[in-house]
Write a protein that binds this DNA or RNA. Structure first.
Lengths: 161, 161
DNA sequence: GAATTATATGTAATGATATAACATATCAAG
DNA sequence: CTTGATATGTTATATCATTACATATAATTC
């Protein structure tokens, strides 16, 4: 089975199991607890393959027999984000599975304002002008949020305006 | 009187009145209504010179005799953001007056996680790696959010960890 | 300059996102 | 196997944001 990945097609089932395997290995190596809720949360994000609100994720966790209260979802999502298995798209207050599991990177997103599809890109941390500004100011960057909003290829055709 | 501007000092009173004058002229030229609420909202953001939540702004508007309900603040803030007089810092769900009034630019922010001071920098839209990724994907960027989180110079001293 | 339309404001109600606090359970280390 | 650290579940609440609709003001047209 294939499904849209960013704005392309790909083998969705393999991508899910690969990401889970990678996360499992990463956690095992660092003695992190890849618990059932956390695993299920990542599965949910991977399966949907788009940004999801915390409450939408929570609905799936509840349906899977986990707790039904917000902290259940927020804690699992925080764990995934902290360890790089997922990202928070700040401009949407939503979460998405990482497309480059395990790799250390500065995530950047191309967010379609029409269909809400999000493609994750990678950028060079210090090559974006921000690094220079930070150096000039003596600011120590710990984390960067880079998000572009606009129209994806298919929405440019359906709504070129 | 001087006050911190980003992580530097500057003439605060002049910076406020300059920004107001600029906004006034900009609106006059485009037949935009720079109404009392909108003007007051910009004044509040300029005076505080840091990010403010919509409800914090609303408190000041209420105290100034304007409405006390959320839409009063959100509508004024939306207007200011739409026309570039202020920006929304997505990672904080907060607003800040623009430091480069009138100029067309991609705003970038250095946000201190300790003291919440925000310095606005400018970056080149297409020089940050994101432009390449967008071109490759056929994605049409309309707006970009670039936000770095970390420690400002003074907080690096007080909490170097 | 009165009628008409568009834009802006005020308010009530509600929706959406997120966290604090605390009890219980499970895991990891000595 | 006990102790301390980590994770989960639940209640309650805090924070951020919008919808809907009434009223008021401004701009446009006749």
């Amino acid at each position: 089975m294939t499904k849209a990945h960013g704005f392309h097609q790909h083998d969705h089932a393999a991508c899910i199991s690969d990401a889970l395997t990678t996360a499992e290995a990463y956690c095992a190596a660092r003695k992190l607890q890849f618990t059932p809720v956390r695993r299920r949360t990542l599965e949910v994000l991977l399966a949907h393959h788009r940004t999801m609100g915390a409450y939408e994720v929570l609905g799936h966790l509840d349906a899977s027999g986990f707790g039904a209260q917000p902290p259940v979802a927020y804690r699992a999502l925080d764990f995934l984000v902290k360890h790089g298995f997922a990202h928070k798209v700040e401009a949407m207050n939503a979460y998405v599975a990482c497309s480059h599991s395990g790799a250390q990177h500065v995530p950047a997103f191309l967010i379609c304002r029409q269909c809400s599809t999000v493609q994750e890109a990678q950028i060079e941390p210090m090559q974006n002008g921000l690094g220079d500004a930070a150096n000039d100011a003596g600011f120590a960057i710990e984390r960067a949020v880079v998000e572009a909003q606009g129209l994806c290829p298919s929405c440019q055709q359906s709504a070129p305006e």
